[in-house]
């Protein structure tokens, strides 16, 4: 019998848990439901983390490759959920996957011909910032930073993660996270001043 591939995971609908609202799912319950292949839970997990993952990935790899990397990150999340043991927060685990995939992508891209990673055509912010020119300069300066600096500044200053969380996500010591952030900010200031002078 010919097999028809389906994107929908509703091919088999295992038992439901009767949660009336998605807010009732904590992360552990959400993971368990995803592991049972429940498509509403998978979609809920996506909705819960899509902005954080996409924002982080976009700001590390740039707009041109963000979609590809974000997709890869989510596939890794769903395929790797069985390895999540709850030792850390789900968000930390997801951020870690996203940062690792992004940094790996950036290091691979270094060998490819240079392209503008920040392409106006894609992924514009939802609402204009108070000072959209500053926002644009900031995003441009971010793209000029080394990838490691970019990761720590995105996690701490944009995503609002603590140094403890940054260290857990980046797999480094808290002191390293602090010193990297300090250097990253200094570089950012340098690039921003340069762009003002030009």
């Amino acid at each position: 019998m010919p097999y028809t591939k389906t994107n929908s995971l509703t091919v088999s609908e295992p038992r439901k848990h009767g949660k009336s609202s998605e807010l009732e799912f904590n992360d552990i319950e959400l993971v368990e439901a995803c592991l049972r292949g429940e498509s509403p839970a998978m979609e809920l997990l996506y909705r819960r983390y899509k902005r954080r993952v996409f924002g982080l990935v976009t700001r590390i790899v740039g707009n041109s490759d963000a979609e590809e990397v974000a997709q890869e990150v989510f596939v890794r999340i769903y395929r790797g959920l069985s390895k999540f043991r709850g030792d850390s927060q789900l968000s930390t685990w997801i951020y870690r996957l996203a940062v690792n995939a992004s940094l790996t992508h950036v290091s691979k891209r270094k060998r490819r011909p240079e392209c503008d990673p920040w392409d106006d055509q894609q992924a514009a912010p939802d609402e204009p910032m108070r000072d959209s020119a500053l926002s644009r300069r900031l995003e441009d300066a971010l793209q000029m930073l080394p990838a490691g600096y970019r990761a720590v500044i995105v996690l701490h200053d944009i995503e609002g993660q603590s140094h403890e969380q940054c260290a857990a996500i980046l797999g480094c010591r808290i002191g390293t996270s602090k010193s990297q952030l300090h250097k990253a900010r200094a570089k950012m200031r340098e690039f921003l001043n340069q762009s003002l002078r030009e």
Binding site: E43, T58, A70, D157
Partner: peptide, 30 residues
């Protein structure tokens, strides 16, 4: 300058993925 940079960074807007990303993810999982 540094204070301004931090304030501006914290105000950067979240980025929404394109609508078709979810379908792409489901397709890759399939």
């Amino acid at each position: 300058e540094e204070a301004g940079l931090i304030a501006a960074a914290s105000e950067l807007q979240p980025l929404d993925p394109p609508d078709h990303l979810w379908q792409g993810i489901l397709s890759q999982i399939a």
